[in-house]
Design a binder for these strands. Sequence first.
DNA 1: ACCGAAGCACTTTTT
DNA 2: GTGCTTCGGT
Length: 792
Amino acid sequence: MSDLWGLGDEGFGDVQRPTPIGPRGDTIPEHLLAGMNPPQREAVEHRGPALLIVAGAGSGKTRVLTHRIAGLLATREAWPSQILAITFTNKAAGEMRERVEHLVGEESRGMWISTFHSACVRILRREAEAFGFKQTFTIYDSGDVRALIKRLIKERGADIQGLTPGGVSARISKAKNELHDVDSWARTANLENPLDAAFLELWRDYESQKQRANAFDFDDLISQTVFLLRAFPQVAAQYRKRFRHILVDEYQDTNAAQYALIRELTRPVTRGELPDLRGDLEGASLTVVGDSDQSIYAFRGADIRNITEFERDFPGARVILLEQNYRSTQTILSAANAVIGNNFDRREKRLWTDSGDGDRIVGFTGYSGHDEAQFVADEIVELTSGGMAYSDVAVFYRTNAQTRALEEVLIRSAIPYRVIGGTKFYERAEIKDAMAYLITVANPDDSLSLRRIMNVPRRGIGPATEAALQAFADEQGVSLRDAMRRVGEIALGPKVATAITDLAALLDEWTAKPEADPGEVLRELMSRSGYTDQLRRSPDPQDAARLENVEELVAVAREHRRQNPSANLIDFLTETALVAAADELDDSGGQVSLMTLHTAKGLEFDAVFITGIEEELLPHRIAAMEPGGPAEERRLFYVGITRARKRLHLSLAMTRAQFGEVNPSAPSRFLEEIPAELIDWRTPPTAVRSSPQRALGSRWSDAPREQFVTGYRDPKPLPAGRPKGTFANTVTEVRDNSSMELAPGDRIRHKDFGEGRVEAVSGAGAKRIAEVRFDAAGRKRLLIKIAPIEKL
DNA sequence: ACCGAAGCACTTTTT
DNA sequence: GTGCTTCGGT
C-alpha cells in the first residue's frame, strides 16, 4: 500500500475532471475507517481504475461499500451525481442510500443507487425518443410476456409443435441476456431446423408486437440500454462523463448483458465526443463486490467468469479478500466451509470468526412435509419464548411449492409469518386487472393490457367483437385503442358499440391527465368501470378478498404519491414493475419470514431454518442434470447456511407430497458433507431401503431415486479424510405398502405409534388413507402407501 | 356471450 | 392439488 490513494501511476492526475475535486491531501475522515480490519480498510481507501472486493458471506461488504462511497464524497473526490451504485434489490439500494446519508449527510443526494433494471429504465426513459420509443413505455413482466407469446402461438395456428409459451419466453430471455437480438441470433442459428425457424418467426412477431405496444420486457431493459449506448456515441459519452465511480454489488451474478453495460459505462471518453470536453477523459473507476461461492443465478445467464476473470478484464485491478466473518458462529461457518469445500475449481476461501462456536446445528427428519413443518413451528415457539423476535427468524426452502405445508402448520400454531415472493401480490388476477387499467391509461398503445380489461368487468365485448376491432385496427393501420374510439365505423350491435364507446371515453379522460395522482386515477377507474361493483355484488366469498386487494393497491398508490409527491402514473407503474421479492421485507413486521433460498441471498437472521434438504429437491432434480447444476445447488445451500447468525436448523422429510401424490424422499447428499459433530440430530435421517436385512451399517449417501424403484443399491465408498455424517445405525424403513389391504377393525402396528385399530379407510390408489386409533398415541391419519406399519 | 363441469398439464430458482 | 382450457348447455 505504498501508493495509498492510487493517484500516482494510475493516471488520475493528468485527467480532466468535469467537476472540482478537493485537494489531494484530503484524507478520509477517521470515523469512516474506525473499527475496520486491515483488508476492509484497504477496500475503503484504495484508489485506482478497478477494484475487486472478494467478500465472503457476512464479511461486512455493505459496510465497506457504503464507507467507500462516503469516503469519496467526504474527501470531495466525487460529487454525488458522479456515483453510480448498482445493488441487487431496491431494498438494498434504499438501505445503502440511507447509510451513506447517515455518514455524510444531505449532500449525498443525487447519487444513482439502484438495481440494474431501475438504472436502465431511467436511462431509457430519458433517451426513449432517440430510438423510436415513447417516454411512456411500459414494462412487461414474465407473465405478460408469456401471455403475449401464447396469443401469438395461437394466432399462428397449430403448425408449430413443441413451442410452448414458457419455452419460447425462456429462450428469448436467454438470448437477450447473451446480448443477442433477433437478427444476430438468426445469423448464428440453423434455420434448417424447422423448430428454430418457427421460433425465430415467433420471436420476430413478439418484438414487433412489443414495439407497437410501446413496451419493453425485463431483459430488454438491460440489452436495449447497451444497444442504445453503442448506437449513439454522444449519448454514451454523456453518461461516461457523468459517472466517474461505478460500484456493483453481487457481481458474481451479473450476466453478459449486465457486464456489457458496465463495460460501456466505464469506457474512456475521447475529445470530440462531447463538445465541452477539453481533453480525453479516462474511464470511470469501477468497484465490484462479490463472492463466486454465492453465485446462484446461472439459470438467468449469470456468468461466474465475470468475477473470476475480473483481473484479466480490467488491467490494473486490485483484488482484496474479506474472509473474516462478523455474522455467524464458528459452528455455522465450519458447516458452510465444509459444504462449499466440495466444489472443485474454486478459489480457496475460508470464513472464520473470533466470536466463538455457539450452539450446535439442530437437525430433524420428519415423516412428511407436515411433520417437518411442525418441527419448524415447535422450534420457533421455543425460540421466541426464549426472547427471540419473530422477525429474527426465517424459513428457507428450494421451491415455492413447499410453502403450503409450512403455512398450514404456522397458521395452526398461531405464529405470525410472511411469505416473501412466491405468489406475489402483483400477480393476483384482480391486481393485474387493476394495473392493466392504469397501464392502458398511461400507455394507450399497450394493446396487451387493453385486451385484458376490454371485457373485465363483463360488458358484452366477447372474442368476436374484439376480433372485429383488431381487424379494423390492422386494416386502418391504427392502434386497438384508436379502433375503439372509431367504433362507429365498424358494423357492431348498438349495445356493444355503446359499451366500447363508454370504456374508450373513460380511459381517454384519464389518459389526458398523466400527472394525476395514481391512487386517485385507480380509484376512479375501478369505480366507474364497474369493477368494484362487480366484486361487491358477487356471491363468491373470494371476491370480497379480491375487493380488499384492489383497495390495498389504491392504498399502495396513495402511499407512493405521499412519499414522492412529484411521482406520476408512469413512475408508479415503473416502480411496481421492478419490485423484487426481497423488497417486500420490512423488519418492523414482527413476523417470521418465509422465502426461497434464492430470495435469501444478501439477508441475515438470528435463526434460520433450511427445509427440504432432500435429493431431488436440494439439489433439485432438474438442476442436478444440468452442467454445473450440482455445484450451483451446493452454493445455494451454502448461501442458506451463511444467512444464520446464531442458530441454524436443517430439516428434511422422509416423504414429500407433490401434485397431491406422496413419494418417498432421500436425504440430500449435501447433508453428509457437514461434519457429524456439528449437528445435533433430534431425529437423524435414515437409510431408505426396501429390504430390511441389508441396511444395517449402510450409509444413505449417494441415494438417487432408482433406489426406490429397484431396491437397495450399494453406495459408493466415501472419500477418506473428511469426517462424514454417521447416522446409519438408526434405520427406518420407508416401504411401499401399496398392496396392503386394510379395512376398519384391522389391528396394525406402527413403528413409532405402536399398535392400533383401523377405524376407517378412504381415498384410492397411492392416496389411500387409514384413520387409526392407536392404543397410546391417539388418532392418526396415515398414508397407507408409505406409513411404517404392518398388519397384525 | 356466458356459465359450469370435466379433463389436462404442470412446478426450479427471478429481475 | 391447482389452475387453465375445452366443451356443451342455456
